[in-house]
């Protein structure tokens, strides 16, 4: 059965007619055309479809679209503002933390969710946070490095801001 679904997508209100059994991934990709969120397995195993719902990282392939009624959904397209990349995105570039790039959007969303609630994670915490995001190219070393560098950069920025005050 179709219902009208209302939620916030990348900071903007979104109202869409949606089948009860539609997955959030198919809604985002096929109905709303935001193809940055990737489909790798449809079994909640690879993490390529990771998005954030109310600040938590979830596999959108295993989430029913109707569950996000009233929620805030953030996809990779919602990160850069006015063409300005976030520190995390910049560090992924600087550290060469992607090759084919297919796992990258999901990886970045998991990393963002981690840093949002734990700005100073240990290497083990970083690895745990991205454990559900499979990457077939990099061996993860440069991804971990990019997340560590982002944490360091944001700590520096925070310290600088404090200094100003």
């Amino acid at each position: 059965m179709k219902k009208i679904l209302s939620f916030t997508l990348n900071g903007e209100p979104c109202e869409v007619l949606c089948e009860d059994n539609r997955s959030l991934l198919d809604l985002i990709r096929d109905d709303l055309g935001l193809t940055g969120t990737k489909k790798g397995c449809e079994e909640a195993e690879c993490g390529a479809c990771t998005v954030m719902i109310d600040g938590r990282p979830v596999n959108s392939c295993a989430t029913l679209a109707r569950e996000v009624e009233g929620c805030e959904v953030l996809t990779v397209e919602g990160l850069a503002k006015d063409g300005k990349l976030t520190p995390l995105q910049k560090q992924f570039i600087d550290k060469w933390a992607f090759q084919c790039g297919y796992c990258t959007p999901g990886m970045i969303m998991s990393a963002k969710a981690l840093l949002d609630h734990n700005p100073n994670p240990t290497e083990q915490e970083i690895r745990e946070a991205i454990e559900g995001n499979l990457c077939r190219c990099t061996g993860y070393a440069k991804i971990v490095e990019a997340i560590q560098a982002t944490a360091a950069e944001m700590a520096e920025m925070a310290a600088a801001q404090k200094g100003e005050v």
């Binding site: 193809t35 397209e77 992924f92 570039i93 992607f98 790039g101």
Partner: peptide, 12 residues
């Protein structure tokens, strides 16, 4: 391809 890959704009 850096910008396209970290912003989700890269099309497969």
């Amino acid at each position: 391809d850096a910008y396209e890959k970290v912003t989700g704009k890269a099309k497969y």
